[in-house]
């Protein structure tokens, strides 16, 4: 239902052109969940915000960029075109519920707003729907909560409200951009379960973004791994976990905190820092940090190509194959 082809989102800044998303393509089918994983700064947020036109005016899209949604092209450069899908067909949940809710509007007003605008409901109807929505995202005492302001709610409740807002108009695609990153660990799972349940109930497609491979492990049908504005590995979830080929994906894997590890084991993080997107390194962008890098890696860029059964990766010396040395 969603086809993204050669998405390039570049920011024209004083420092130069920031190639935040640099040639990303993928497809997403109805009812499926795509997990997008990558370190902070790899372009996940810019990618999804591009789809909804939620970027500042310094963002420019590449000429070959084409987006299709439900069989029709979607012009992401046009506010009018975007407003046809925003809120109705595609909805979004943001990372930080502390900042994504309007502090001066009641919870109810923020939910009923889209109901009234898109569905033309009257005040009373919208309010009833809002109560039902709040109830359905697991907030107790919905009738009281509806008249409260965001600052009167905890972070977890706020994110539930944000989800309720996103679900209000029954979207076909829900984008959740790190919906649990800002939340207390104890409630992260609850929120993710809520999203999964709603997705199943409403038969929505979902893009679930995270920097933590562990989060998407049981919840996504497919996983795309992003690095420096590009997708570097892509596979059905089970496949990926069974056979990860990119050294970067593996590094991400190793960075997942493990419950079975003895306490005080230092987390294995990836050495080095993500590259400067104004002047990305030549060849493979991961090369400066890659333990398997060879001279070929810096000379030639590896294409995103396939192994079997839809497993694609961009690496000259994939894990599980002997290196050049």
């Amino acid at each position: 239902m969603l086809t993204v082809s050669n998405l390039r989102t570049h920011f024209h800044t004083g420092r130069g052109i920031v190639r935040a998303v640099d040639g990303v393509s993928f497809n997403l089918a109805r009812g499926r969940t795509l997990g997008i994983v990558g370190e902070s700064g790899s372009g996940k947020t810019v990618l999804v915000r591009s789809l909804l036109g939620l970027l500042p005016s310094t963002a420019k899209f590449g000429g070959e960029t084409e987006i299709g949604f439900e069989g029709r092209p979607l012009d992401i450069r046009s506010e009018t075109a975007l407003n046809q899908v925003r809120g109705r067909a595609i909805a979004m949940v943001f990372q930080d519920p502390m900042t994504s809710l309007n502090p001066v509007m009641t919870v109810g007003a923020q939910i009923t707003e889209s109901l009234r605008y898109h569905l033309g409901l009257t005040g009373g109807e919208a309010r009833e729907r809002a109560v039902a929505l709040i109830d359905s995202v697991g907030i107790p005492m919905a009738r009281q909560r509806i008249d409260q302001h965001p600052h009167q709610l905890s972070g977890g409740l706020r994110q539930r409200v944000a989800i309720a807002i996103a679900l209000a108009c029954e979207p076909k695609l829900l984008i959740a951009d790190e919906p649990t990153t800002a939340l207390d660990v104890t409630i992260q799972a609850e929120i993710l379960d809520l999203l999964a349940r709603q997705q199943a109930e409403r038969d929505m497609a979902m893009i679930l973004i995270t920097h933590d491979l562990g989060v998407v492990a049981g919840r996504a049908d497919d996983i795309a791994v992003m690095y420096a504005g590009r997708i570097v590995e892509r596979a059905p979830t089970a496949r990926l976990f069974a056979n990860m080929r990119m050294p970067y994906t593996q590094a991400l894997m190793n960075a997942i905190p493990r419950l079975e590890a003895p306490p005080n084991t230092p987390l294995r993080t990836i050495g080095g820092r993500p590259p400067d997107l104004v002047n990305p390194p030549p060849g493979c962008r991961f090369a400066p940090r890659c333990p398997r890098a060879e001279s070929r890696c810096t000379d030639h860029e590896p294409p995103l190509e396939g192994g079997e059964s839809g497993h694609r990766f961009a690496c000259w010396y994939p894990v599980g194959e002997p290196g050049a040395a």
Binding site: A91, M92, E113, S114
Partner: peptide, 21 residues
């Protein structure tokens, strides 16, 4: 602010976002 992106993501027209949000 994020809540403005949120309002945009709701598909509200610009004037409504400016005045209401």
């Amino acid at each position: 602010e994020d809540f403005i992106s949120m309002a945009k993501a709701k598909g509200l027209p610009a004037w409504r976002i400016l005045t209401r949000h």
